[in-house]
């Protein structure tokens, strides 16, 4: 931000992640919780841009999976094929990793996968708000998985679930050390699980915004701009392509890790 005054380039890579109410403008200085000034703060119930894009995500998923499969055709059309292929992919992933017992949790895993894929892709639209770039959102997703898996593990296996941390194949002297490491890595799971997704999405979007800011160089200095502007446009195209890939891969990774954690809860033998 310090460079802005000198060069005239407007770098605001993080502005796209600001949560704003849809129907009102927050007056400056009306939300400082540390000073008990909260009248301008975003209420938990009011519709914001996050609400809008969460809703659009839900609508897109419903459009694909409910209206797309309305025909119930034996020979599917394109939209129905996409829905069926997504279904088949997640189903197979869950079955391969967790076995038949894991299929009980298929709707949950499918919900996670579809939500992440669609909000990643909707977040790639210009001027949109990517919900998966918010730590709050991915944190809730990861905590849901973490708490769900932990509770499920104890309900299904009781104290036997703790065998996950007690590596019985290791020498006895090493086991307490390994147990400590396993315990720490178990509790780091939700952190890495959520930050991986949010970080990937945020990084890509921020990099695109930085390139976009450099794209305005032609307006400021034609001599430098003639080189920098085409390069930055190319850069945006390249990063955008990469982001398309990252969007699906991160959703896949999030889902597959959910499956792996679920497997640990169902079969805790190390």
């Amino acid at each position: 931000m310090a460079t802005e005054a000198e060069t005239g380039l407007a770098f605001h890579p993080m502005d796209q992640f600001v949560v704003k109410p849809l129907f009102r403008h927050i007056e400056p200085g009306t939300c400082v919780p540390s000073q008990n000034i909260t009248e301008g703060c975003i209420r938990w119930y009011e519709p914001t841009n996050a609400t809008l894009w969460l809703g659009l995500t839900a609508l897109a998923i419903i459009a694909l999976f409910v209206f797309g499969t309305r025909g119930r055709a034996i020979i599917p059309n394109r939209v129905q094929s996409i829905a069926e292929m997504t279904y088949g992919m997640v189903y197979k992933m869950l079955e391969d990793i967790c076995g038949k017992e894991g299929l009980k949790y298929f709707p949950f895993v499918m919900t996670l996968f579809c939500f992440i894929v669609f909000s990643n892709y909707l977040g790639l639209l210009p001027k949109s708000f990517s919900t998966t770039s918010q730590i709050a959102v991915t944190g809730v997703l990861a905590l849901m998985v973490f708490l769900g898996v932990t509770i499920l593990g104890f309900v299904k296996n009781g104290a036997h679930f703790l065998g996950l941390f007690w590596v019985s194949s290791a020498p006895l002297a090493l086991r307490p050390v390994l147990a400590l490491i396993e315990l720490i890595s178990y509790f780091v799971r939700p952190v890495s699980h959520s930050i991986r997704l949010a970080g990937n999405v945020m990084a890509g979007h921020a990099v695109i915004k930085v390139f976009a800011a450099f794209g305005a160089m032609l307006l400021i200095s034609p001599i430098i701009g003639i080189v920098v502007t085409p390069l930055s446009v190319l850069g945006i195209v390249g990063v955008y392509g990469l982001e398309m890939l990252v969007a699906i891969i991160q959703a896949y990774v999030f889902t597959i890790l959910t499956c792996v954690y679920l497997k640990d809860a169902l079969h805790p033998s190390h």
Partner: peptide
Amino acid sequence: TATLFIGMAFAEALGIFSFLVALLLLF
């Protein structure tokens, strides 16, 4: 391929942590 992606995700997570540290320092 599933194992590949899991391995990649774990390797990448640590890079994400350093990215996060950078962001936290900056902002």
